[in-house]
Amino acid sequence: MEAILSSFLTKYNYWVFIGLVMIGLYALIAKRNLVKKIIGMNIAQTAVILFYVSIGAKQGSTIPILDSSHGHDAHHAVQAIDYINPLPHVLMLTAIVVSVATLGVALALAIKVYQQYGTLEEDEIQAQIDKT
């Protein structure tokens, strides 16, 4: 019990992101409204981004910018432990762009669907399709 609790507390960031992914997937699967689905999708994507961001972070470390005043030989003194890992964060810049673009395309498609059927409820759209 204690072990579980401690794993929960020390790695709470992972649990948060698991929770977020689940919320997102739930909305994506269970909700019948297209915009709610889109929101769910975006939550899930954001959760993945958060996960990446959190794996780059380290306790007690700082942003990875080297102080130039140390001169050239300062490079040898750089300790990786002092800095957070920048790579996941850089990657996530791209992933954020991707997720925003996906959101944009999804909303555009949703608008098109709305123009076509006059509703965003899947059940009603399905009813209209079945009718034709």
Binding site: A44, T102, V105, A106, L109, V113, I125
Partner: peptide, 17 residues
């Protein structure tokens, strides 16, 4: 097409994620 594409987008995004 747009509805199918939207459904494709949902599934595709989940897959990619």
């Amino acid at each position: 097409a747009s509805l199918s594409s939207l459904n494709y987008l949902f599934m595709g995004t989940v897959g990619a994620s």
